[in-house]
């Protein structure tokens, strides 16, 4: 369809609004009757291919995540358990929200030299852009934990420290290869 067709001037008949109202109503009512039928079948326990609602009933029902969804950060460890991070501050520099706070210190192992003394991420400011992950030359920070329910009663509660970030238990089960095929379970 040519874009200009979308904006063709209204005819006299269109200007009465009546055909347009009927147009609109036909769309919404089509959805209404289709969904109500599916809901009734669902309540009666009859399986259907389609769902009556596209929404997920959070928190009862976790939304499945696409494999590349960016979720809560975590810091990776080396084999010996020390942080991979060398406090190069690339992530801090790349972060558009300026929510990463790093203070570096000397690492006893002179081959690596540097490590973070403080590594805080203020999730209250984070925009989940993932630039920090892209910027990291050490693969030390990742956003693949599958945790999206991040909330706190205080601002400080949104500030994750180095220890917390190193000890996050990823919930990989939240990642699904094809979330669009996972059916929500409506609660009525």
């Amino acid at each position: 369809m040519n874009v200009h067709d979308k904006y063709k001037p209204l005819t006299w008949w269109d200007k009465t609004y009546i055909p347009l109202v009927i147009d609109g109503l036909s769309v919404t009512l089509r959805h209404f009757f289709r969904n109500i039928r599916l809901h009734i079948l669902n309540v009666l326990g009859i399986k259907t291919k389609e769902r009556g609602a596209v929404t997920y009933q959070y928190p009862e029902e976790m939304r499945p995540l696409w494999p590349r969804t960016r979720t809560l950060h975590r810091l990776m460890r080396r084999e010996d358990g020390s942080p991979r991070c060398v406090a190069c501050m690339m992530c801090e520099t790349a972060c558009p929200a300026r929510c990463i706070y790093i203070v570096a210190e000397e690492r006893p192992d002179v081959q690596i030299e540097k490590q973070p003394k403080i590594f805080n991420i203020d999730l209250g400011k984070c925009v989940f852009c993932g630039y920090c992950v892209e910027a990291c030359p050490e693969d030390a920070i990742r956003m693949d934990t599958g945790i999206i329910d991040i909330a706190s009663y205080t601002r400080n509660g949104m500030l994750l420290t180095k220890e917390q970030l190193l000890n996050i238990q990823p919930k990989v089960e939240n990642y699904v290869a094809r979330p669009d095929l996972v059916e929500g379970q409506p609660i009525y």
């Binding site: 060398v86 190069c88 690339m90 690596i112 030299e113 540097k114 030359p137 050490e138």
Partner: peptide, 9 residues
């Protein structure tokens, strides 16, 4: 090529 830990970077 220590640039991440090098102060000169």
């Amino acid at each position: 090529i220590d640039c991440p830990v090098c102060d000169q970077a």
